[in-house]
Write a protein that binds this DNA or RNA. Structure first.
Lengths: 190, 190
DNA sequence: ATAGGAGTGCTAGTAATGCTAGAATCGCCT
DNA sequence: AGGCGATTCTAGCATTACTAGCACTCCTAT
């Protein structure tokens, strides 16, 4: 019994090690650098071990993404609770979201761009995801007026996401980024 | 001389054939189905022929994307010129953009998501791209007020792009799509 | 007409990918 | 100590984008 639990503990630890290694690798060099071979080498196990923990590469990306959601939720929360008035809160949370996307592009892609086998728009979605969305929603709430809060939050989210991904993909110049952000947030603050 | 021109003509025709085949394939089965082998088989040439026309797969995607921009520009133009008042024009152009993204998802991805070796946010960008953006800009112009027209257009574009990509990636439910679109366009119509 | 030659396209192969079957090894219990 | 089960590794598969170098074709010049 005790041996069993020890093994489970070691196994869980190794799983965390794999996720951590994947995250380090991807944040340093992007997703195309995260191959099963390189990842296996990093954790000092052979490739098949990865498949005893995860169904495939997509599942590893999903696990990394979930960690990302937790980080994002924390950063959004910090921005929201630090703000004094509602308008400032939306602006700060929006800016925090943008900063996250800019500073952790590969992580952001796993969370919001890549097709990854995670439930998203449903109650089964990871708690961290709901937490992150919740932060955005609470920031929007005071300014929603008679609009549906959930839909309005999703719309703002879409705006932020679009601006960041277009910029990262080279479709928008970095120049003007702050002003676009201000325009978007301004439209959601009256 | 005449032989030379005939060869050039044949060559250009074959290039168009490759692009058309790539587009058919991708619209039917998505980008992961567009492999150099399958594409070569479709055009009834060997793989190396593809590389005598294009630097690599990315360049083929770029060529397909350029065709997509032309299509998008045409559809946006039709929506804009059919509308009677400015508010309706923005709403219709926005809806046309969303419809394009929804009906040609793979094409849309090549244009706006995949990293592809094309100049985007610069004068060297393909004319079709400028045309498409121009349609959006002309729709926004009457409602820009004292905001910078270019930046405001980019911001609306970001909003549309974000909503569509989040929905396509499973991050947003299809349910509520129309209302989110209305919320976004509403915020840009006053 | 025919030999030569330029250029065009194909065959065959490389390195790398995600993933897996089956062998080998390790560690626990009797 | 011996043997059994679970665990991990070696080796390989099929597929990817891309390329080197041969072979053929078709035009040109004698």
């Amino acid at each position: 019994m005790s041996i069993q639990t020890r093994r489970e503990r070691e196994r869980a630890e190794r799983e965390r090690l794999i996720i951590a290694a994947a995250r380090e690798l991807v944040e340093a060099e992007g997703w195309e650098a995260v191959t099963t071979r390189r990842l296996a080498e990093r954790v000092e196990y052979s490739q098949p071990v990865l498949y005893s923990h995860f169904k495939g590469k997509d599942a590893i990306m999903a696990a990394v993404a979930v960690e990302g959601f937790a980080d994002l939720a924390a950063e959004l929360r910090a921005a929201r609770t630090a703000a004094t008035d509602p308008r400032q809160a939306v602006a700060d949370v929006g800016a925090a979201y943008a900063a996250f996307a800019e500073q952790r592009p590969a992580l952001y892609d796993a969370m919001f761009t890549h097709t990854v086998d995670l439930p998203f728009a449903s109650p089964e979605a990871p708690a961290a995801l709901h937490a992150a969305f919740g932060e955005l929603r609470e920031a929007v709430r005071p300014l929603a007026g008679e609009d549906d809060l959930g839909l309005l939050t999703e719309t703002l989210w879409g705006g932020l996401h679009g601006l960041m991904t277009l910029m990262r993909g080279g479709r928008l110049r970095h120049e003007g980024h702050e002003r676009r952000l201000a325009l978007l947030l301004g439209r959601f603050s009256r």
